[in-house]
Amino acid sequence: MAAAEEEVGGLVFHPMDQFIVKPLFGDGPISWYTPTNAMLWMALSALAVIALLVFGTRGRAIVPSRSQSIAELTYGMVRKMVEDITGKEGLKYFPYVMTLFCFILFANALALLPMSFSPTSQIAVTAVLAFMVFFFVTILGFVKNGSHFLGLFWVSSAPAAMRPVLAIIELISYFVRPVSHSIRLAGNIMAGHAVMKVFAAFAAVVALAPVSILAIVGVYALEVLVVTIQAYVFTILTCVYLKDALHPGH
Rank of each mutant, 00 (worst) to 15 (best):
I229G: 06
F134H: 12
A3T: 13
L225Q: 12
L214M: 12
F117C: 04
V8N: 08
L47P: 02
G146A: 05
A46E: 07
Y220V: 07
F13V: 07
A215D: 04
S118D: 14
G76W: 05
E223Q: 14
V198W: 00
M81T: 04
P35E: 03
V155Y: 03
S31E: 09
V205S: 11
E72L: 10
A124G: 14
N37G: 08
L129R: 02
L40C: 08
Y75M: 06
L150C: 10
G10F: 06
D84L: 06
P114Y: 03
D84Y: 01
A221R: 08
L53N: 15
I123R: 13
G249W: 01
I62S: 14
M190K: 14
M115E: 15
S180G: 15
A191C: 10
A38R: 09
W154K: 10
I213T: 11
K144Y: 03
V219G: 02
I104S: 01
A191K: 15
G87Q: 08
A209M: 12
L185H: 03
P29M: 12
A48T: 13
N108Q: 10
G151E: 02
G9T: 08
S173P: 00
F134G: 05
A38Q: 11
G59K: 15
K197S: 11
N145M: 09
T238M: 08
T235K: 00
P248V: 07
P95Y: 07
A46Q: 04
L152M: 14
P95F: 06
G146C: 06
I189G: 00
A124D: 14
P23M: 02
T238N: 03
A200K: 13
K92F: 05
V206T: 15
F94A: 12
I62E: 14
A61S: 14
V226T: 11
V155S: 09
T228E: 01
G146H: 05
L47N: 04
Q18E: 08
L185C: 04
L222Y: 14
L113E: 13
G218Q: 10
I189T: 01
L24C: 05
V21L: 03
A71W: 00
G56S: 10
P159C: 00
L214E: 10
I70K: 02
A186D: 04
L185Y: 01
I169M: 10
L246I: 07
P248M: 05
V128L: 15
V198C: 04
V137C: 07
D84A: 12
V179I: 15
Q122Y: 04
A109Y: 07
V63F: 09
A43M: 11
G187H: 03
A200R: 12
P15R: 06
R79M: 05
G28S: 06
F149W: 09
L44S: 04
M16C: 06
V226C: 07
S147P: 01
L100D: 07
A158C: 01
S118C: 15
Y174L: 04
R163V: 01
A215H: 07
F13I: 09
F136Q: 05
R58I: 10
A71R: 00
E7Q: 13
